[in-house]
Write a protein that binds this DNA or RNA. Structure first.
Lengths: 200, 200
DNA sequence: AGCGTTACCGACAAAAATGTCAATAACAAA
DNA sequence: TTTGTTATTGACATTTTTGTCGGTAACGCT
């Protein structure tokens, strides 16, 4: 009677799988409940493992958060990199590209990630962001085929609006009693008109 | 030698003053270091009082955060309420009004407050926001003198952009290597053009 | 001055969150 | 099958954060 045995067999994953499993759990926690729910016990529970397992793979809860940021940023960069908006493209193509950009931020919590980063002081974490932004900016600007200065402006404008709308659009719309994607719709409409006027 | 005396005289405030002092300290903590620094010890230290004093006035650290939210929201509502943009106003007046709106969110951390609210799950806290938004929307829409449906759209658009730019504009601009207010400048320019076209 | 109220504080207690460790068990390789 | 490696875990230890309590002192009032 002195020893308690656990009947359910352990799941033994490869280190990579295990890390991915934990980060995925943490990501959905972040998106659904916010950064303050990224506690060791919560992450472990969501991942279906013991607290000690999380620490075994990451060393600390801070390292989990750091790794999560890096993974989400990498995903976001991939999404953005996949967007191609040649300067001479027809308006419809530009519209599609911008929609994709806005989607990248609104869905899967990239905007929430950005807000988390923004509210989080730690400058150490920002180096990852800085690198990612520069990667994207460089590629996007060089491939845009427009004077780099105004291209930078356009990217700054588009990304700022995309992340802002992605974070606040849904809630504000709901608060005012508007349909789900109304803020994004209005913003895209305005932004496209603006771009068209600049091009024409 | 058994009793340690404290030479520095106590500051005795009225309950209202004391609460205001603590909330002000908490507010600057929120703005400068983010929500996760709103810990009991940090708030108390910033306010220059003992931990127990904070609890004496608010009961719990959660109540401090709740009160802070309510105070900041009330301030923000006041700022917005003070903005008047008659439909038949000249373009310059509209530009001023929008600038004030953007300022209200960017300065003094209203955008950060909004992000905090957005990332914070607790639905109980959202009732305050809901009420504030409805107050503002009702007044603004009724006084706008335009068809209420498109007026709502304009408010949704303006506020979403204002808070998004207020939160992310500075950092993104800095990351891309643009001057401080560039994102806001670009956004305002576009938004004003958009409004003008709608009016004309 | 004397007194009552209560804002204030230090010391302590409680709770919550993070991290450590030794033992266990899954799996691959010999 | 046996053995070595290590992912996994429960129990425990440590740290951090929140909250309690009795006494102290500032201030208004008589």
């Amino acid at each position: 009677m002195s020893i308690t045995k656990n009947n359910t067999p352990r799941i033994r994953r490869s280190p990579e799988e295990s890390r991915a499993n934990i980060l995925s759990a943490a990501e959905s926690l972040l998106v659904q409940q916010g950064p303050q729910s990224l506690r060791l016990a919560d992450v472990a529970k969501a991942a279906g493992v013991a607290n000690a397992t999380v620490l075994h793979h990451f060393g600390s809860i801070d390292a989990v958060q750091q790794a999560l940021m890096e993974r989400m940023i990498a995903d976001l960069v991939d999404s953005i990199m996949a967007i191609e908006i040649p300067a001479d493209a027809p308006a419809a193509a530009r519209a599609d590209g911008l929609k994709t950009l806005f989607d990248a931020f609104e869905t899967r919590g990239a905007a929430r990630l950005a807000a988390w980063l923004e509210l989080t002081d730690e400058t150490s974490r920002l180096t990852v962001v800085r690198q990612a932004v520069q990667d994207v900016a460089q590629k996007k600007i060089s491939s845009a085929g427009v004077p780099s200065d105004s291209a930078e402006d356009l990217i700054l404008l588009s990304v700022t609006l995309a992340v802002g709308v992605g974070l606040f659009g849904p809630s504000l719309g709901k608060l005012i009693g508007k349909p789900e994607g109304r803020a994004r719709e209005l913003t895209l409409q305005m932004l496209l008109g603006h771009l068209e006027r600049l091009a024409g």
